[in-house]
Design a protein around this nucleic acid. Structure first.
Length: 571
DNA sequence: TTAGGGTTAG
């Protein structure tokens, strides 16, 4: 017992080695409990070399011995030896238990190896083990991180004893991987089953709400957090800043920020980013010196948030100044993301030559985001040669991303290079790639409706299409010319027009026009960027109907009012 | 001997 408590008090590997020597000298190492505890202590300090020497010399081993070694190796990131020991367990005829399996499943999760994860899952089933909370949670987590959401959900639904942790995992997973609406449905179901959420569960719900951009849900969740007396500490407060900002209310985000007792670099960066999405670049920049005065140093994300805020507000000189001083003033070395912000900033301002010069002179490795930013700018200013160069680089970097092929095909089509259009289309078909669907959500009377292109699943589809038809006549009379360049160029012009008129955000706007009361803004959330044609369309709708439309897309807010958009100058 | 976590962008 004395040696066990000595091990518990060890603060470093040196102290563990001293205890190791003592128990060896007095012969206590023969006792399996002592040896296992020593092994565990080494593993906790990630001293797997020492652990392995001890393990190799142990004459007697039990399941704890194996498990501690497997868990320790996985925790230290030594997956090769972790799988090696697991194979040895199986070869020796020992059965993995409800401790072994979570360690192994988490190792598969960490290396994102779905195939191996399924193998371990099968081994567990064949062993006839009754999986407990830990095994189930590890399996759900592994399937989620390997993006096998259907497997994760199937398992979750079959689980007899779901607990708070497994519910939280599923809620977080749906928020992360594209179905935030389902996260909130699960949150309600969890509470129906009398499971009381804790802070981590609330964090996931707040995160889901931020993704969905649903204002009434944000208000409900804020109220729930207050009623249940969750403290607005750094973590939850920061998540709430992000939620309010992404639901369209930057003032509430600022109220949360001001009310937080303690703030760190993450909270400040979140607030700077919040002003950034709303095109309030000056307010974002004003926070920076305040942050520094409060003794907080910026990190790489603070600078990304600041530079995007500049980009979304057209503050080119301010952005250039921040970019050139970040290393000297605060020791933050510009990485590819910062260069991307600068390309975006210069590109939107039409300073394409400078953007290109920046790319040519950069020493850090270029990625797809950087070329994407340059391509975006080329499309706005019709710079065909550069656009082609950027699109080809993108295709090389991301051969599996169908969006990249569509962009390049559209660029060729705009230049009338139909042979090249056909070549790209064939490449897509050969590689069996399909364009990722764009989704649009609209909140009407506390309900979130979801639309995809050409969607007819809504019960009021007839009225929506009727509204769209009458709207298109009014818009065309007012001078709107549909820009079919935003439709994949493999269909006839007439079909293209049909597709263009049923883009998911147009369906949502048409629905919003008759389903929301006059005088209130139509609030839309998109999972991708607003395309140029939908941008023009929304502006014209705001002019002919006198309605305000607020669209949140993948990176920012657009406020359409009286035929203008808040980002007109920097689109 | 075993779980889930905040900020940018896409």
């Amino acid at each position: 017992m004395v040696y066990i408590s000595m091990l518990l008090n060890c603060r470093n590997v040196f102290q563990i080695r001293q205890v190791h020597t003592q128990v060896l000298v007095i012969g206590m190492l023969r006792h399996l409990i002592v040896a296992n505890k020593l092994l565990y202590t080494y593993a906790q300090h990630k001293a797997m070399g020492d652990a392995y020497v001890l393990f190799a010399g142990m004459r007697e081993r039990d399941s704890v011995t194996w498990n501690v070694m497997i868990g320790g190796l996985a925790k230290a990131g030594d997956y090769m030896n972790c799988f090696g020991i697991f194979r040895e367990v199986i070869r020796c005829g020992a059965r993995p238990d409800n401790y072994t399996l979570p360690f192994m499943i988490r190792a598969c999760r960490d290396i994102v190896d779905l195939q191996m994860g399924r193998v371990i899952h099968d081994i567990g089933l064949k062993c006839g083990l009754e999986p407990d909370h830990f095994v189930c949670a590890a399996l759900v987590d592994m399937y989620v991180k390997c993006r096998a959401m259907e497997d994760a959900r199937l398992l979750f639904d079959k689980m007899q004893n779901r607990n708070l942790v497994t519910w939280t995992m599923m809620i977080g997973a749906y928020a992360e991987y594209g179905n935030a609406k389902e996260s909130l449905v699960l949150f309600d179901r969890m509470r129906d089953q009398d499971i009381v959420p804790d802070k981590v569960a609330m964090l996931m719900v707040v995160y889901a709400c931020a993704k969905l951009g649903a204002m009434h849900k944000a208000i409900f969740i804020h109220d729930y957090i207050c009623r249940n007396k969750f403290s607005l500490d750094i973590t939850l407060g920061t998540a709430m800043i992000d939620m309010y900002a992404k639901c369209g209310n930057v003032d509430s985000a600022k109220e949360i920020f001001d009310g937080m007792q303690e703030k760190n670099v993450v909270s400040w960066s979140a607030m700077i980013a919040a002003y950034g999405y709303h095109g309030q670049g000056r307010k974002a920049l004003a926070l920076f010196p305040m942050m520094l005065r409060s003794g907080i140093s910026p990190n790489r994300i603070t600078y990304i948030s600041l530079l995007y805020a500049c980009s979304h507000a057209g503050l080119v000189e301010e952005g250039l100044q921040l970019f050139s001083s970040m290393w000297d003033d605060h020791g933050v070395r510009p990485d590819v993301k910062h260069y991307t912000c600068m390309v975006d900033l210069l590109g939107r301002a039409g300073r394409l030559d400078e953007a290109l010069k920046l790319i040519e002179n950069m020493t850090v490795e270029k990625d797809e985001g950087l070329w994407g930013a340059l391509l975006g700018a080329c499309r706005i200013y019709g710079h065909m040669d550069l656009a082609e160069k950027a699109a080809e680089s993108l295709l090389k970097l991301q051969p599996q991303n169908p969006g990249r092929y569509v962009l390049l095909s559209n660029i060729y089509a705009k230049a009338g290079r139909w042979k090249d259009v056909a070549k790209i289309r064939n490449m897509m078909m050969r590689r069996r790639l399909k364009k990722v669907p764009g989704w649009t959500w609209i909140e009407v009377d506390k309900i979130i409706y979801q639309f995809s292109v050409g969607d007819k699943t809504h019960p009021q589809s007839e009225e929506i299409y009727g509204m769209l038809q009458s709207l298109s006549k009014r818009l065309e009379l007012a001078g709107y010319v549909p820009d079919t360049n935003f439709v994949l160029h493999d269909v006839e012009e007439e079909v293209k027009l049909g597709i263009l008129y049923t883009h998911s955000e147009k369906l949502a706007i048409a629905f919003g026009l008759f389903a929301t009361p006059e005088g209130t803004p139509i609030r839309i959330t998109k999972n991708l960027r607003v395309c140029g044609d939908c941008h023009t369309f929304s502006k014209m709708v705001s002019a002919v109907t006198q309605r305000e439309i607020i669209v949140r897309d993948a990176s920012r807010f657009h406020h359409f009012k009286m035929g203008a958009c808040s980002c007109d100058d920097y689109w």
